[in-house]
Amino acid sequence: MPICEECKSFFPIEEEPGKGDCVQKCVDARQTYFTARVVSADHDASRCDTFQKS
């Protein structure tokens, strides 16, 4: 089972072991932007569309 920690988009949070930011580059009709969402390192990523093994 792939987990978030193994993904290229996962950036660990130093102050909070076991957690990281899932950072994605997004484009909508008006702009490019980057989002960050806090995820657990061991979160199941098997259903994640954007998972990319690092």
């Binding site: 997004c26 702009q31 490019t32 960050a36 806090v38």
Partner: peptide, 9 residues
């Protein structure tokens, strides 16, 4: 702590 955040280019 858990709200998604973003930064525009």
């Amino acid at each position: 702590e858990t709200d998604p955040i973003y930064i525009v280019d």
